[in-house]
């Protein structure tokens, strides 16, 4: 039953991904400017432009170009970058890895912290810890990410304490994680931006669950408080929180341009901005479809958490 359900969700995801690929393709067609012109510059002769257009298959019908592109996606061929001339997959490989590392580290910090702080906040409803946690998360949620980043740089890197470097400076060709200390500030900034939402959602759902009949019943059954929280309350509070986490993860996967810019971090956000500026259509397409895929994957994971924590979804007939 559960396998069938997941299979169905996967199928829907694939359909959505196809729709997204079409949108991405149409959107890049609508980008103003001619890629050939962008590559060759203003001084290019019409003959050279024509030759390049022919080489880039720009003269083929739209549907044929779309099919070529989508076919390439399946075999990992993302085309060639118009700006550098190299394969897109090579160009983006490092960027994607760097972004994944940042996203992974930030979620490793923010998800457990968010869930734990939210739970304790709910358990200590109305007491000092709760007030501190809710107040703090509200302030953090209200601050834009660059303010958080600049504040951290001021605090930990420049004016007050000088512990962590404020910029990422890995020599080209070396992975970002070779210099862990450079990752601290970007990770911390992202975690501080994302955690408040998780805390607030966890607190809200937890309060609701703590008021529910089955939690009262568990207490009246004589179940120790620790088990009441861990076995009866928390699992029920997780499903809505998973949705919030998914949205946050997807936001991070979309490339956090401001944070990458602030810390000179070589992620996909800045790569996408560059590609759009340079009319590097192949790169824009590749990144867009990648981000769309990331959105779909994290939402699928959130749905999965929902299914796992709610047997009703698992055992009722799939409609």
């Amino acid at each position: 039953m559960i396998a069938k359900m997941i299979f169905r969700r996967l199928l829907v995801s694939v359909v959505i991904l196809f729709a997204a690929s079409m949108l991405v393709f149409v959107a890049t067609l609508l980008l103003p400017g001619d890629p050939a012109q962008a590559i060759l510059g203003q001084q290019a002769t019409p003959a050279r432009l024509d030759a390049l257009r022919e080489q880039m298959s720009l003269n083929d019908p739209v549907w044929q170009r779309y099919l070529n592109w989508i076919g390439g996606l399946f075999v990992g061929d993302l085309g060639y970058s118009a700006a550098t001339g190299g394969p897109v997959s090579e160009l983006l490989g490092e960027r994607i890895q760097a972004s994944l590392v940042l996203m992974g580290l930030a979620s490793l910090v923010s998800i457990p912290v968010g869930i734990i702080v939210g739970t304790f906040s709910a358990l200590r409803r109305g007491r000092p810890l709760d007030h501190v946690a809710t107040g703090f998360s509200l302030v953090l949620a209200a601050l834009p990410e660059f303010v958080v980043g600049i504040a951290l740089i001021t605090l930990l890197s420049t004016s007050v304490l000088k512990i962590f470097p404020s910029v990422t400076m890995a020599p080209p060709g070396e992975a970002v994680w070779a210099y862990p200390i450079q990752l601290v500030l970007p990770t911390l900034t992202l975690a501080l931006v994302v955690t408040p939402y998780i805390v607030r959602m966890m607190r809200a759902t937890m309060l609701e669950v703590l008021d529910s009949g089955f939690v009262e019943m568990a207490r009246l059954k004589g179940v120790p408080e620790r088990d009441v929280i861990l076995k009866h309350a928390v699992p029920h509070a997780l499903a809505p929180v998973a949705q919030v986490i998914a949205i946050q993860l997807a936001w991070m996967a979309g490339g956090v341009v401001v944070i990458e810019f602030l810390f000179r971090y070589p992620g996909i956000g800045s790569a996408l901005v560059d590609a759009v500026t340079n009319r590097d259509v192949q790169v824009v397409q590749a990144l867009s479809i990648l981000i769309a895929a990331a959105y779909i994957v994290v939402n699928l994971l959130a749905d999965l958490v929902g299914i796992l924590t709610n047997p009703k979804l698992r055992t009722e007939a799939v409609r």
């Binding site: 529910s212 009949g213 089955f214 009262e216 019943m217 568990a218 207490r219 009246l220 059954k221 004589g222 179940v223 009866h232 699992p235 029920h236 924590t309 709610n310 047997p311 009703k312």
Partner: peptide, 19 residues
């Protein structure tokens, strides 16, 4: 609680852990 003295709730649909 639950041993010597036990409780039967009003609405079992709400008082049994659905998961």
């Amino acid at each position: 609680r639950g041993g010597e003295i036990s409780y039967v709730p009003q609405d079992p649909a709400l008082s049994l852990n659905p998961a």
